[in-house]
Design a protein around this nucleic acid. Structure first.
Length: 556
RNA sequence: GCGCCUGUAGCUCAGUCGGAUAGAGCGAAUGCCUUCUAAGCAUUAGGUCGCAGGUUCGAUUCCUGCCAGGCGCGCCA
């Protein structure tokens, strides 16, 4: 509907220009806003103000020309417009006819689960890397934010037509792993842990489990024993992470091991590739990538002077791997403590001969604070007092945890109030939205019992003339736009905010417009129309929640 | 010192491809269930959109500078 309206106004501009009423270029696209104020109609455009300068005319005059052209050429009825008004300095407010506005309900009921999807990103093969952690401990709050947001973003990008592969990068190389093994062994032997080792209680538990399944492990020579502990701990911990994520509704297509980058000569292959681009050099016995060629603040070491690989070596090979596997967009989701990586990753892409603006995106998730009983829980891995994904889920449940984490833009630091999330009231937005869905389901169940037919065949859009109905229909029509802009901006929180608004709008409608027939009242077309509208609303809430990975219960 | 993020109602936060009277929840006050799920709805109160300049017909939104807070700046991973 919206595109039809925009098209008709553009057409009016063309006609006005050809008739010599307007002397300026006609834009190829027209922006239609949804006015905040309902008195301003269903759509509004400020095109007259925008064109004022280049046309050298008063905005109000241009607006008049547009409106006159629209009416004179009888363009209004075809686009389903019932009213066009000029307001303020030159805004054009457009009101749709109920019937034409209401067709969106039919569209929703026809498309079902697919309503809102698009082909905006068709042809994009996206590698979405998120969570990526050391397999040396439980996933903490920062990981959890990305587990929720990343998963949702993956669904969103797929809904926009992209082919998405979700990838978890397992940091299973380097001295963190050795420290992990040494910490486990120390715990098993009751010895003090290494100074900069792992100190959480979970180390004790893991150590016990490892010793239980392999009692001889402590008898081995120290270095063998440590590496045996490392291996065993790695397996257990990775499995635990996988389970926790699975339980959280977050699944990955690929668990990519950092170690595997060094198998089958892959690292050398990727280094050769980089060398061919001419940004690799040797200095002081080390091998460097000249990332400063592309705006990084310093060059990065890949092979250290002692011959071992720096972390960045893995990064570079990993990137090459992603590109060789055919991804034409690599999205990295990193924590705020890694924001220094942005320049480096972009420069890396450039060093590999790619376009850092197009082929790579780095999203930074700010810190999450958690408050319980009015006190901030301080997070320290060292002291072992981290809040884990499992603990969060245990405290508030998967739905509330996911929803809350997704609800905020990731570039703002957020505070989670555990006490609030435990409340089953509308202080807690996830319940508010879920309640709206459950409420609709209840209404529809009752409708069936009363013999009220609803659905595409029984829906008469022209009957929906009440202000609440029009508002609700108008909001439903916005959903595809919300999805595409959320996908484009990589901001799943927009979906959450939208369905909150939709839930609120439904509750308002529900309060003012009775869906079901009363008592002995005869069932009318209006009952059917309203029930169909309710059904469409439930469908959109369901679709939205689905993108967030949150349940849409039919009963609460 | 340099870089990234943030600063909007008492609290937690949305919003802004530049547009008409800046929004929501909580908290405060007051109404609405002899008939759809009151986990709901409505009304009222509450704002120099951090500060100062600039661009513009128009700036909370864009630009510059400053102030405040968070986080980073290893041949660690």
């Amino acid at each position: 509907m919206q595109s039809k309206v925009a098209a008709v106004i553009l057409k009016a501009l063309e006609i006005a220009k050809s008739e010599g009423l307007l002397h300026c270029d006609v834009p190829s696209q027209l922006i239609l806003d949804r006015p905040k104020n309902r008195d301003h109609g269903d759509y509004a455009t400020s095109i007259a103000l925008a064109l004022a300068k280049s046309a050298n005319m008063q905005p109000g005059v241009i607006a008049k020309v547009i409106v006159k052209t629209l009416t004179d050429n009888k363009l209004l009825t075809n686009a389903g417009i019932s009213k066009v008004e000029i307001a303020g300095a030159g805004f054009i407010n457009i009101t749709l006819e109920s019937a034409s506005q209401g067709v969106v309900v039919t569209e929703i009921l026809t498309a079902g689960k697919k309503f809102g999807t698009s082909n905006m990103l068709t042809g994009k093969k996206i590698n979405l890397e998120f969570v990526s952690a050391n397999p040396t401990g439980p996933l903490h709050l920062g990981h959890t934010r990305w587990a929720a947001v990343g998963d949702s973003l993956g669904r969103l990008l797929a809904a926009a037509g992209a082919q998405v592969s979700r990838e978890f990068y397992v940091n299973d190389r380097g001295n963190q792993m050795d420290l992990f093994g040494a910490s486990l062994r120390a715990a098993a032997l009751g010895k003090p842990r290494p100074e900069d080792g792992y100190h959480g209680e979970y180390i004790e538990d893991l150590a016990k489990e490892i010793v239980k399944s392999n009692p001889q492990i402590t008898q081995l020579a120290e270095s063998e024993s440590i590496s045996a502990f490392t291996q065993a701990g790695y397996k257990l911990q990775l499995e635990q992470q996988r389970k926790a994520l699975d339980n959280f509704g977050t699944n990955f297509d690929t668990w990519f091991s950092e170690r595997s980058l060094y198998e089958n000569n892959f690292f050398n292959h990727s280094l050769d590739k980089l060398k061919k681009q001419g940004h690799v050099y040797e200095e002081e016995g080390a091998t460097w990538l000249r990332t400063t060629d592309f705006g990084d603040d310093k060059d990065r070491v890949m092979i250290k002077s002692d011959g071992t690989f720096a972390y960045f070596a893995s990064d570079s090979a990993y990137y090459v791997s992603k590109r060789e596997r055919g991804f034409n967009l690599c999205i990295y989701m990193l924590g705020a403590d890694h924001h220094g990586y942005v320049g480096r990753v972009k420069a890396l892409a450039a060093c590999a001969g790619d376009d850092p603006e197009k082929d790579v995106e780095v999203l930074i998730g700010q810190m999450v604070k958690i408050i319980e009983g009015g006190v901030e829980l301080k997070l320290s891995k060292r002291a072992g007092t981290i809040i884990t994904l499992e603990e969060l889920v245990e405290k508030v449940g998967t739905d509330a945890a996911r929803y809350t984490l997704i609800r905020y833009p990731t570039d703002t630091p957020m505070v989670m109030d555990i006490d609030l999330l435990r409340k089953n009231t509308n202080e807690n937005p996830v319940y508010y939205v879920q309640y709206a869905h459950a409420r609709i389901c209840a209404v529809l169940r009752n409708a069936k019992e009363l013999g009220i037919n609803y659905g595409i065949k029984f829906y008469a859009p022209e009957l929906l003339t009440h202000e609440r109905e029009r508002e609700l229909v108008g909001l439903l029509a916005q959903y595809p736009k919300v999805l595409s802009s959320a996908a484009e901006l990589r901001q799943p929180h927009r979906v959450a905010r939208y369905i909150e608004e939709l839930a609120a709008q439904y509750h308002r409608f529900y309060n003012d417009c009775r869906v079901l027939s009363l008592g002995d009242e005869k069932v009318s077309g209006l009952n059917s129309a309203r029930a169909s509208l309710s059904q469409a609303t439930a469908q959109v809430i369901n679709n939205g929640l689905d993108l967030l990975g949150v349940n849409a219960p039919e009963k609460m």
